[in-house]
Design a protein around this nucleic acid. Structure first.
Length: 481
RNA sequence: GGCCCCAUCGACUAAUGGUUAGGUCACAACCCUUUCAAGGUUGCAGUACGGGUUCGAAUCCCGUUGGGGUCACCA
């Protein structure tokens, strides 16, 4: 049985890289009929943000990712919040010490900083030296016992072998080998008795029977430590899969400063969750096809960890925009109308879902995001009060007044549908000897006040005869016809 | 700097020893046209470099260069 987990820290928003990690875990679990778990890793009290865990869940749910086991849903391996599992970590940390795989250290942060600085100045790579620092090996049994009884501040560090190689297999990168001498004696239990990520992570992954650890590449360097810990406890190691990083345009790790990194930002900007998920799914993975558009179910059906790429992928908003517009054009109009109705009302428009749906149908090919609808379609709800100066300058001449008046009369007498209206206009252009382009532009100017918009006759049909005639008359007055 | 990872058009990627190196975004041109789009057609553009292995290399090996990640009592 496949069991995977997404384990974020509740320190704020959901990073798009986090979304992709969560998504791959979810897809992998669903693909194999497995279980996907959400675990909150809140062992660092200093970085904790109130309400962040709930926000994370809300955003993940918006994206269409549901967990089988989570803090709110529960499950038989809970609790799913690390701060509620502290006793467990202390217990296993003690066991690690008993097994000789970890030891007590009594150095203060100041001492460590000083040592680090000294080594740095000397040009030597930093690594905790357990033969010279203050720990149970240098202090001796009696002194260690005394300090422990005295409740002196202490940490528990892992005892990493001084020689040899640490090997592990990565599902996307193959075998990885690192010299043990380059691995630091990582702190497992802090002096406040709280575990660090490394301890809490392997304890929970083991206890929750996680079979595959799918996480970002930034974790690759600490995986040897995790492998060592599983071995020390006599636990079976899960399979590891380290995902390529999401990058800024300059190829550095995707970060704030260079654009939006929070999923919430994209949500607020009006991107569809389907588009964001589709886009992010294809960043670092591809099912070897030319296909670009995938629904969640289609992603589940084709997802394959072995096809995940090794190289980082630049997050290109232009392609996201394109993908979003694909969804915008494919979605049912009534659904779009329902989604954007609140924003329409907020911008002072009262309308019916049916009319709004028709309006969206007219303009959806001209915008990238649904939330552009209110600003793009004001003329569909309000009589224009202003006319784009440059556009008017370019297309309006006083001698157009008389023919326009006649055209308006002709149009009013024809069936108020796009096709007949077009025919009538064409006929009148021919008859009057004026190019149809002139009528088109002036009509657009008078009816919408804008230089850009949907097809003119479709727009007029939807607006209705009375409204259009009224607008043309009003414009004629304003323009001094 | 040590360690680790990575390397196909500007971007996302396909091609797992044999293809004129394919698709998508972006960009450009043309067509369509009623503004803006959309759509259609075409174009631009890539295997980082150097050595091997092989009849044959984007693909396998080695090196170089370049990029990235990581080196906390953060995760």
């Amino acid at each position: 049985m496949v069991r995977v987990r997404f384990a974020p820290s509740p320190t704020g928003y959901l990073h798009v890289g986090g979304l992709r990690t969560a998504l791959y875990n979810y897809l992998f679990a669903k693909r194999h009929g497995g279980i996907c778990i959400l675990r909150i890793e809140d062992t660092d009290r200093t970085r904790l943000v109130e309400g962040a865990a709930e926000a994370l869940l809300t955003t993940l749910r918006w994206a269409g990712i549901e967990f089988d086991e989570s803090p709110e849903k529960g499950g038989q391996y809970g609790p799913y919040v690390q701060s509620e599992r502290f006793d467990l970590y202390r217990q296993y940390s003690a066991e690690l010490v008993e097994r000789g795989a970890a030891y007590y250290a009594f150095d203060t942060p100041e001492e460590l900083d000083a040592m680090r600085k000294r080594m740095q100045d000397a040009g030597i790579a930093w690594r905790y030296d357990r033969t010279t620092m203050r720990n149970q090996y240098t202090l001796g049994e009696a002194e260690t016992k005394r300090l422990l009884e005295e409740n002196a501040p202490k940490t528990v560090r892992m005892k990493v072998p001084l020689s040899g190689e640490i090997r592990f297999e990565d599902l996307v990168r193959g075998p990885i080998e690192v010299p043990a001498r380059d691995v630091d004696d990582q702190i497992l239990l802090k002096s406040d008795n709280f575990p660090t990520y490394h301890l809490a992570n392997i304890v929970d992954d083991h206890l929750m029977q996680i079979t595959h650890v799918i996480r970002g590449e930034e974790w690759l360097p600490s995986t040897p430590k995790h492998a060592l810990l599983y071995d020390a406890m006599g636990w079976e190691r899960p399979k590891f899969a380290h995902l390529p990083l999401l990058l800024n345009p300059d190829k550095t790790k995707l970060s704030k400063r260079q654009g939006d990194v929070a999923v919430e930002d994209y949500r607020e900007k009006g991107y569809f969750h389907e588009a964001l998920v589709n886009f992010v799914a294809l960043l670092g993975w591809n099912p070897s096809s030319d296909r670009e558009i995938f629904s969640m179910q289609e992603l589940i059906d084709t997802f394959d960890l072995s096809k995940v790429n090794k190289a980082g992928a630049v997050f290109d908003v232009q392609k996201l925009d394109w993908m979003n517009s694909e969804y915008l054009r494919a979605k049912p109009l009534d659904e779009l109308a329902r989604d954007i109705m609140p924003a329409m009302q907020a911008s002072g428009v009262t309308t019916t879902p049916e009319y709004l749906a028709s309006v969206i149908g007219l303009v959806r090919e001209r915008i990238h995001k649904l939330n552009e609808v209110p600003a793009f379609t004001t003329y569909m709800f309000h009589v224009p009060t202003e006319y784009e100066a440059e556009y008017k300058e370019k297309h309006w001449l006083p001698e157009h007044a008389a023919p326009m008046r006649t055209l308006a009369e002709r149009l009013a007498a024809t069936e108020w549908k796009a096709a007949p209206l077009q025919e009538a206009t064409k006929a009148f252009a021919k008859e009057s000897g004026i190019k149809i382009g002139v009528f088109m532009n002036v009509l657009r100017l008078m009816v919408t006040g804008r230089s850009v918009g949907a097809g003119m006759f479709e727009t007029m049909e939807l607006l209705g005869k009375d409204e259009c005639v009224k607008r043309i008359d009003a414009a004629l007055v304003v323009f001094g016809g």
